[in-house]
Write a protein that binds this DNA or RNA. Structure first.
Lengths: 303, 303
DNA sequence: TCACAGTCATACGGATTGAGTATCAATAAA
DNA sequence: TTTATTGATACTCAATCCGTATGACTGTGA
C-alpha cells in the first residue's frame, strides 16, 4: 500500500466523486479509478459502491477513511518533525556539569535554552570531570562543562570558554590566619593543603603545584577529594586549608573563610566541551545559546 | 513521501547497512541508496552519516525512525482493520426494537453477538415501529425489530421471522370476567377495547379488527397508545380490556389479568427488518447470528 | 605494506509502472 | 429523446524505478 492511492481515496471519500477528486488532485479521473481499484484489489473489498451517477462509501471504506486520514497526517507531521530534529528544535540533549563551577548560571542558561527550544527534552547531570569523560564515551552526555581538558583530548573534543575565575584561599574560621584581610603564598608553607583530585582538573592542579614550587615549597597535600563540597567540608573540619576557584564560595561554606591571595593571578577557566565530530543538532543549538550567553554568565558568576 | 522508501529507511536504520537492508528487502543495494537519497532530498537533511565502512544515523534520522515505524505499523493495521470492517468484525451496529416484543431475548442475543464480534460497537434503541421506520430513513439504525411491515415496504425491506406469539386477552383484575379460565371472542361484544396504534403493527391491528368482524361486532376502541406498556396501564386503570400479544405479560402487569382466547389462533410475528440494499457487514453479521438463534429465541419467549 | 574484500555512490539500459487520451456504457436532467 | 456527466476500460507514451556494471573508499589480513 502506498500513500498516493490513499490520498486519492480520501479525496474520493470526501468529495463523493471520482471526477471531482481527480480535479482536486490535479490529475485525471482514470488515474483515480485505478488507484481505488488497486486499493480494493489489495484489500479484497469494495471501498465504494458506485453506479455511474452516485458514489457511496462502504463500511470498509469508512474504516479505511479514518485510518488513512491519520496515516497521511502523521506522514506530514513526520516530515516536519524530522526537519525540526535536523535543526535541533526537537530531540533530546544531555548535559553533564561540575556543580561547583556551574550552580550559579546553569538554571538560567537552561531556561534560556528551553524557552528558545521548547521541544527539546534536556537532561542535566551533576558530574565530576572524569565522570563526564566516561559519559562521553558511552554517549550519556552530549555536552560537558568542566575545567580545561588534558592536552591529549583537545583534538577529539572542542572546548569553549564560559567564564574565568580566580583562585582563593579557603581557611577554617578558627585558623590563626583567619583574621587577615589577604594572604601571600609564602604564608602557606607550613599549612596542610587540601586539593581536589588531579583528574578533575589536571591543568589547574598542576598550576597550583607550580605556583607553590615557584615560592619554593611543596605543599603538604593531605587529601584529594573529587567533589569541591568535600574540600570545603574538610577545611571547615580544620583538616587543612584549600586553594580553590572562587566559585566554590557559592557552595555550603559554613566554617570556612575565603581570603584573596595577593601574589596570584591564575585564571581558572570553565569550559563547555563536546566531541569535535558528529555534534547533535540539539547540542549545537545549546552551544550557540551558551556562546551568546558568555558575557552574561561571566557577570552572573562575579555577582 | 511514499511508504516503500520508508521501509528501506527503517531497514537501513535497523541493520546499520545499506547492503544488508537490500538483502532483507529482496532487492539490490543501489535501490536502497536511491531511496535514502530521495528521502534526504525531500527532507533537506542527512539521515545517515556514511563513509564506505560505517553507517551512523543522525538525530534527524532517529526522529524519522520513530515516526516511520509508527506510520508503517499503522498502515499494516489499517489493512487488517479495513478487512475486518468488510467482514463485519469491526465497526458499529445500531439496532432499534420494540421493547414489549424483545425484552426477553434482546440481552442474550446481543451478548451472543458481542462475544462473537467483540470489536463491533453495538447501540440499542427502544423504538416503536414507526420510530424505527423514521430511523431507517435517517440511517440511525441498521436493523429494526418489530411486527411485519405494511405490504408497500416489503420490497425495500427484507424481513426475517424471530418468533411467533399468540394473542391474549388482558382484563383489569376487578373485571367481571376476570375470574374465568378462558374466554371466547363473542364475550367481548360489549367491552371497550384498548388497542395499540395501528401504525405500530398494521397487519396485527387489522387482523384483530377482522377477527371481531368475523364474530359480527365492531370493537369499541377507546384509545390507541403507541406503547404496549401504556395499553397495560390503561387496562389496569379499568379503562377497558385489551387484545395483545402474549409477550406483553413480561412487562409491568400489576392490575392486569391475562386470559387465553379460546376461538383465536392468530399468529403474532416478531420480525427483524433491514434495508434490502446495502446492508452493512456488521448488520449482516447480526442477521446471521439472529437467524441461528431463532429456535432459542422462540424457546426463551415461551418460558 | 599491499592486496583484498566489502562498503556505498553513480551511470546506464531496460522493464515496469503510471499518467493521460479517447471512448464506452449508464444514468439523471432537460 | 437528447444531452451532459459519471465511472470503467483500452491504449499509448513517458516517467520512474529496478538491476547490472562499475568506481571510490576503507578496514583487514597476509
Amino acid at each position: 500500500m502506498e500513500l498516493k492511492p490513499l490520498k486519492s481515496f480520501i479525496a474520493v471519500a470526501t468529495l463523493k466523486s471520482f471526477s471531482a477528486a481527480a480535479r482536486e488532485l490535479h490529475t485525471v479521473q482514470p488515474a483515480i479509478s485505478r488507484h481505488i481499484a488497486a486499493l480494493e484489489k489489495e484489500l479484497g473489498t469494495l471501498l465504494f459502491i458506485r453506479n455511474t451517477r452516485d458514489v457511496h462509501i462502504t463500511a470498509a471504506g469508512r474504516q479505511l477513511f479514518t485510518d488513512a486520514t491519520r496515516i497521511l497526517q502523521q506522514a506530514e507531521e513526520a516530515v516536519l518533525r524530522t526537519q525540526k530534529a535536523a535543526n535541533g528544535e526537537l530531540g533530546s540533549l544531555k548535559v553533564g556539569y561540575l556543580p561547583s563551577a556551574c550552580l550559579t548560571f546553569i538554571p538560567d542558561l537552561v531556561q534560556r535554552f528551553h524557552s528558545q527550544y521548547p521541544d527539546v527534552e534536556i537532561s542535566l547531570f551533576e558530574m565530576t570531570a572524569s565522570e563526564q569523560l566516561l559519559a562521553f564515551e558511552t554517549n550519556h552526555i552530549d555536552i560537558g562543562i568542566s575545567r580545561p581538558l588534558p592536552q591529549e583530548l583537545q583534538t577529539t573534543f572542542t572546548s569553549q570558554l564560559l567564564y574565568t575565575d580566580q583562585l582563593t584561599l579557603v581557611l577554617p574560621s578558627q585558623h590563626a590566619l583567619a583574621q587577615r584581610q589577604s594572604i601571600r603564598l609564602d604564608d602557606l608553607r607550613q599549612e596542610h593543603i587540601i586539593l581536589f583530585q588531579r583528574e578533575e582538573a589536571v591543568g589547574l592542579f598542576d598550576s597550583i603545584i607550580n605556583l607553590c614550587q615557584r615560592h619554593h615549597f611543596s605543599p603538604h597535600i593531605s587529601a584529594q577529594p573529587k567533589h569541591m563540597q568535600t574540600v570545603l567540608t574538610m577545611v571547615a573540619a580544620g583538616l587543612g586549608v584549600a586553594i580553590a576557584p572562587l566559585c566554590v564560595s557559592k557552595l555550603f561554606t559554613q566554617g570556612c573563610r575565603f581570603m584573596p591571595i595577593e601574589d596570584d593571578h591564575t585564571q581558572v577557566l570553565t569550559q563547555m566541551h563536546y566531541r569535535s565530530s558528529r555534534l547533535a543538532p540539539t547540542a549545537q543549538a545549546f552551544v550557540n545559546i551558551a556562546s551568546e550567553s558568555v558575557p552574561w554568565i561571566q557577570n552572573s558568576v562575579q555577582a
